[in-house]
Design a protein around this nucleic acid. Structure first.
Length: 901
RNA sequence: GCAGGGGUCGCCCAGUGGUCAACGGCGCUGGCCUUAGGAGCCAGUCCCUUAGUGGGUUCGUGGGUUCGAAUCCCACCCCCUGCACCA
């Protein structure tokens, strides 16, 4: 006989519309997972967040809630365009990956040169994969972030942000390629290096009608400047920028010109500057311009300020010139390390010495950590604070400028030119730095349920750390920025409140995009004004039914950006009662212990995995085998094991026909107790996302227990067990659960509520069974050690008082009180009890109450036949007092003495 | 550098004051099953001891708190992640 296939179960879900959620009388739960970005097919790694979300959705249905779990596609930004472009260029590596790993025919892949075609193709792929995986999604609500209706919604979002004063315009430095005339990310560079931008300070030293701009990482050392350094071999230029003349090295300015636009007035060799004087911006003292070989024309500004008191390079260079007497090093920072000593100790002879690097590090580390300023207006301030303060003060007074450099330079683009920093004007920002906004967000985070809870700290940190975030880009898919239509809204900014859109996305298409103006959404989401018509009103009602969002799910990589923005934006736009309630974060999926990557070729496509192991096995493998935040490791052998166990459970109705009406045995009571107790505990585990625990207890352990049960029982009665068990695990294994229910009941699990029967939980029964298991093991041990098989086993049940006494010890841990109780008891037992107490003293804290003697006895008698069969022995169960064998005295309630003869 | 997380029995990984010599998986050893292999099942896997319920030494290193610590505190060493305008 064939099992009910996944396909049939899926067809049932489809036709019964069980996942299409509509407002009702029932209590609602609204759940979303971060929507996928369809620029390539999905692999098992993608399955984790969605499976976890689905488990939660299905769990909530199982406890009678009306659950909405929708899905859409995020297509905003440049990666899709970049992918289409790579295809258009005929990127062989890419086409090979598509063909060999994902099985996409080359011809098909090659045709995806239009971003929209690409999106449609991959989103269809992904949707199919999600359906195969058994995700209980309401697909009627699907949308793409380039849909005109969605665009209108995002425009409205930005109108609201602007209204609240959170949208700002300003300048912003970005990595830039002159040759490509575009911003540069890691994927545009040779070797995929991420160009890092770093701010340095350019300090202005008066020089005739111009300023020599010295670049420094340590503006606080301005007070110790004795001279300037240049490289006499280099060319220098005088540039007019915003009405002032600046001097840089020529090579440096070539790079800086993209952030400091100006007109080159003249050009001259370094020797022109040599030995002339410049004015210190603070003291106005004249300081000489001297040559140093360590000054590189292409770095910084090509001009360096000399602080011999705190910089080994400067000290040694001055010494080389014999000018240490004339230009005495100034001590402006207190520190236990002095430059002289370090240079001396390392034996540095001249400015070309490679050891200078080390010396600089030593000095810098010491001063940055422990150093304090000695200079009047900053006296006593820690260096790391003074650094910022001095910089800001200098800039404010017009004595310095901000300069950005590529910190890990040189970085080269794929086109071959060096990445420079460009200052983008007209850059728009969302100002997450706004203090009152932050305060409200902080407050809400404190109240929100964050799972796992340990992440709350990280969220709060992120809130503190966020400043303004650039929200527009010059190109990409998505929504045009309403206040400057030449720009596109960037991808992390248009995905912050889209969950609200799901609540009405299936109905809003009835309106034309033109109708979706500010007033439309103001009414829909904020209840302002009046509805346009009945449909409009019903949208509002549906929105209010589902909102607020009850649970937001995503991978751990989105904590510091998306998830935090998501909360920020909700707080900015919606009233308090509609703010999100819970965030659930999960780790990634590794493949056989390694990160999945194209270069390793260890990517397992989702569809292939499902085909091979079945959806339920994949669901357990990605969601139930590791802790939530931990990266879960996908092992084929584990998936294989899960698959086999699942089919064992699934086949039980056939291998052990329904004999539920035959008389109950003691072991049946044991199984009932186990099952009901586990189900009782599972609710909390679902709520807290202790998914690994659930799988451990209800899947792996249950499997062992059923195996044991089948050994123990005479006629297996599994019908009720299977129904309950599959229901409890149905969030993980919906296909198996439905199949079992169809098999047993001729119907699906829809509408069934998970419950347990408290009266069936019987710990005594479970403990008694543990004794049986222990006896088997002990006999085996004894046989091994004694090296004899034996013919007869005598199990001797402990004396009554021992049961009572252990029961007392399980409750009373105070020695004095125990002793008192002993003395109050029967006189002739005092000695024995004290003896036993001293023996058990060490493990007193872990003594549990024993099962009742009646149940234990009954259970042992019941298992006698089983024991005899298993051990091939004659078994006798007797009371301790009937024996004279010395071993008999050792009997304890849960450890009956065993005598093997 | 700043921030967050982490170092556990060959490996991966649970465990936040006593039920911990420490879950689970992998690996390894022995047994069952099988024509055989694989899979599956059972048992073992820190050391010593013992016809089973006994003892010793462990949880990055070194100190401390406690009747009691993998778990709390202090110091140190090492590792991972993020530092944005990118999805």
């Amino acid at each position: 006989m064939e099992n009910i296939s996944e396909e049939k179960v899926r067809a049932y879900w489809e036709s019964s519309k069980v996942f299409q959620a509509n407002p009702s009388e029932k209590e609602k739960v609204f759940i979303t997972a971060a929507f996928p970005y369809p620029n390539s097919p999905q692999h098992i790694g993608h399955a984790r967040t969605y499976t976890i979300t689905d488990i939660y959705a299905r769990y909530n249905r199982l406890i009678g809630k009306n659950v909405l779990f929708p899905m859409g596609f995020h297509v905003t930004g440049t990666p899709i365009i970049a992918m289409a472009k790579r295809i258009e260029e005929g990127d062989e590596d890419l086409l090979k990956i598509f063909e060999e790993i994902y099985g996409i025919p080359k011809e098909k892949a090659k045709s995806l040169t239009n971003p929209k075609d690409l999106v449609l193709y991959f989103s269809k792929e992904i949707e199919e994969g999600m359906k195969l995986l058994g995700l209980s999604i309401d697909w009627r609500r699907k949308f793409y972030t380039f849909d005109p209706h969605f665009n209108k919604f995002i425009e409205w979002q930005f109108l609201k942000l602007k209204e609240a004063g959170f949208i700002e315009k300003g300048e912003h430095p970005i990595p830039w390629s002159v040759k490509l005339n575009s911003p540069i990310g890691a994927h545009d560079t040779k070797g995929d290096v991420d160009p890092e931008i770093e701010e340095i300070t350019g300090i202005k030293f008066e020089f005739g009608d111009s300023y020599l701009v010295a670049a420094t990482y340590r503006p606080e050392t301005i007070f110790g400047v004795t001279n300037l350094w240049i490289n006499e071999e280099e060319q220098y230029v005088k540039v007019r920028i915003k009405g002032e003349n600046y001097i840089f090295s020529k090579k440096a300015y070539e790079k800086l010109s993209h952030q400091l636009e100006g007109e080159i007035l003249e050009s001259f060799g370094g020797s022109y500057l040599l030995n002339k004087k410049a004015k210190h911006p603070l003291s106005k003292k004249e300081i000489p311009i001297l040559p140093a070989s360590f000054v590189k024309g292409g770095e910084g500004t090509g001009i360096v300020m000399s602080v011999p008191g705190h910089a080994p390079y400067d000290y040694v260079a001055l010494r080389d010139l014999g000018k240490l007497e004339e230009l005495k090093p100034l001590k402006i920072i207190s520190s236990s390390l002095s430059v002289e000593e370090v240079v001396e100790k390392l034996g540095i002879k001249e400015q070309t010495s490679p050891k200078l690097e080390e010396a600089t590090k030593l000095i810098y580390k010491e001063e940055a950590h422990k150093g304090k300023m000695l200079i009047e207006s900053y006296k006593g301030m820690l260096v790391k604070e003074a650094k910022e303060k001095v910089k800001e003060d200098l800039i404010k007074e017009g004595k310095a400028i901000r300069i950005w450099v590529i910190a890990n330079s040189p970085v080269y683009t794929r086109a071959g030119d060096e990445v420079v920093v460009k200052l983008v004007k007209d850059q728009w920002f969302i100002n997450y730095g706004n203090p009152s906004w932050k305060a409200r967000v902080r407050e809400h985070f404190e109240k929100m349920k964050i799972i796992p809870p340990s992440l709350k700290k990280q969220f709060l940190e992120t809130v503190e750390w966020l400043e303004r975030k650039a929200c527009t880009r010059s190109s990409g898919l998505g929504t045009r920025f309403p206040f400057d239509k030449s720009k596109m809204i960037e991808a992390l900014s248009d995905s912050t409140i889209y969950m609200a859109f799901y609540t009405i996305s299936h109905k809003i298409k009835e309106f034309s995009p033109k109708e979706l103006d500010e007033a439309f959404f103001d009414y829909l989401f904020l209840g302002k004004g009046t509805p346009k018509n009945a449909l409009h009103k019903s949208l509002r009602e549906e929105f209010l039914y589902w909102y607020p969002l009850d649970s937001r799910h995503s991978g751990a990589d989105l904590v510091r950006n998306h998830l935090t923005f998501f909360v920020f934006n909700h707080i900015a736009i919606f009233p308090k009662e509609l703010w999100p309630k819970q965030i659930v974060v999960n780790g990634f999926v590794l493949m056989e212990g390694k990160k999945m990557s194209k270069s390793l070729g260890n990517i397992l496509p989702l569809k292939e995995a499902i085909k091979k192991y079945g959806a339920d096995a994949i669901r357990i493998s990605v969601a139930g085998t590791s802790d939530l935040l931990q990266d879960s490791d996908f092992y084929r052998s584990v998936a294989e094991g899960v698959k086999q166990r699942l089919s064992f459970f699934k086949n039980l109705p056939k291998s052990h026909p329904k004999l539920e009406n035959s008389e109950k045995e003691k072991i049946d009571l044991w199984l009932e107790s186990k099952l009901n107790r586990k189900i009782k505990g599972v609710f909390k585990k679902y709520e807290e996302f202790q998914l690994r625990e659930i799988i451990l207890e209800l899947f792996y352990e249950m499997y062992e227990e059923i195996k044991w049960y089948l050994q123990r029982v005479k006629t297996p009665k599994l019908r009720e067990f299977l129904k309950k068990w599959s229901l409890a695990l149905s969030p993980f294994i919906p296909y198996t659960a439905e199949a079992i229910w169809f098999e047993l009941e001729g119907k699906g699990i829809e509408g069934e509520k998970l419950s347990w029967e408290e009266e069936k939980i019987n710990l005594d029964r479970e403990k008694a069974e543990e004794v049986i298991k222990a006896i088997l093991l002990d006999v085996e041990n004894i046989r091994k050690l004694a090296n004899k098989k034996g013919e007869k086993l005598t199990i001797c049940l402990a004396l009554d008082w021992k049961f009572d006494f252990l029961s007392l010890l399980s409750k009373e841990k105070n020695m004095e009180k125990i002793q008192q109780k002993i003395k109050e008891g029967e006189k002739h037992l005092i000695g024995e009890k004290l003896k036993l107490l001293s023996k058990l003293r060490k493990e007193l804290h872990k003594i549990e109450s024993p099962p009742s003697k009646e149940i234990l006895k009954e259970h042992l008698e019941d298992a006698k036949e089983f024991l005899e069969k298993q051990l091939q022995l004659k078994v006798e169960i007797v009371e301790e007092e009937t024996l004279t064998h010395p071993k008999a005295k050792q009997s304890l309630p849960t450890k009956p003495a065993l005598i093997l003869e």
